[in-house]
Nucleic acid binder design. Sequence first.
DNA 1: GTGGTCTAGACCACA
DNA 2: GTGGTCTAGACCACG
Lengths: 124, 124, 124, 124
Amino acid sequence: MTHSFLPSQPIYTQIMDVFIERICRGELKPGDKLPSVREAALEVGVNPNTILRSYMEMERRGIVETRRGQGTFVTLNIEMLEYLRKELAENQISILIDKLNQLGYTPQDISNMILSSMQPKEDA
Amino acid sequence: MTHSFLPSQPIYTQIMDVFIERICRGELKPGDKLPSVREAALEVGVNPNTILRSYMEMERRGIVETRRGQGTFVTLNIEMLEYLRKELAENQISILIDKLNQLGYTPQDISNMILSSMQPKEDA
Amino acid sequence: MTHSFLPSQPIYTQIMDVFIERICRGELKPGDKLPSVREAALEVGVNPNTILRSYMEMERRGIVETRRGQGTFVTLNIEMLEYLRKELAENQISILIDKLNQLGYTPQDISNMILSSMQPKEDA
Amino acid sequence: MTHSFLPSQPIYTQIMDVFIERICRGELKPGDKLPSVREAALEVGVNPNTILRSYMEMERRGIVETRRGQGTFVTLNIEMLEYLRKELAENQISILIDKLNQLGYTPQDISNMILSSMQPKEDA
DNA sequence: GTGGTCTAGACCACA
DNA sequence: GTGGTCTAGACCACG
């Protein structure tokens, strides 16, 4: 019953998440070319198949498009990207809220804390 | 030959974080005994020294008290625990807000999204 | 088979104390580099981990600063060093006073003895 | 050039010092019997010869008297004990003053610090 | 090179 | 039994 502590999520998922974050943050814009499978594999230090799998999964979800012989590109479908960005944000938010619930905070507490976190008063 | 890839915090820190979460969630209450160093080491699959280090760090922070020959116990200092819980919550919140900022959301967007994430729970 | 017999403080603490004394006496000045962990380990004849531990404890107390890949340096924070020097002196003094109390000397005796111990130096 | 860190003074001297302190503190009074050599050796975990040597050294200095077949006793010579007590105290004091000098304190600083250490103001 | 983490296993002090 | 110190040696991250 040994925990691993180190990331238990499959590596290809982790890699995908990194690309999705880059896309949502705008580091990779619609139409931009992702690094080639081999290139990314070297950079990240994993097997090219692992990279390929994350590209395929992103293609399945409509996030990227693969063009034979040319490479993999961020989709030009802006709505898709908007949706993705919103989904990412909402996931993060609901994870946070769950955690705070587990810590025993009420919804009221939570919104107070969050709101006060966003308007940092400059006391000093 | 598996690369770990994602930001790998030291194991002893991760272990500490797990215990802190358990304490903040109330799974471990003030005065409760933590598993012995050796026991936890077996359970988690790491070296006893690694567990010891996380216990010592928690002791240094006043989260647990350790009594030679008896064990390690959650502090009875309730204020400390309250502080810890709040700190944990605020950290999580500020991490979230950073991420959402990076995704290009304005403070206004963020509070809207968060508030609407919490209302469904009241209806259901 | 030699018993150590007298109160044996942990080695890493003793090592720390030696460094602190050197710093307080000005042998190691603000910004000076401490010997590398491995070097000090050889010199002193202990395991590098033991040296590391004393360095880490000094860092925790703000006495030294450690820069990855570069080394460990005496803090530039002069106030800290002043504080340290004073603390060291006061500790030594209170230890002495305790001992003299145990020997049955009254505060009056003690100050007389100390004052007369210091005057000869002025004459000589 | 390995430091030892652990007490470098000969064991028999350390043992003697412990007895002298006990005598000066009045735990062992004039005429009291010291433990037998064998007894003390067991208690302390050293060779009986080591104990014997410390007893002999104390006898040489007139601190104890050994009576064949009866044991070793604290001297009845009160002046001797007074002298011993004073010597012990003055040694400790001069050691302290040396240390404080090395830390860069002036005689003036030293007497101020010591005097203020002895009249602990109860602020709280 | 530097510091830092981790393991394996010994040995100690306290109770 | 408990926590705590120490060693030997591997391996990592940073520069």
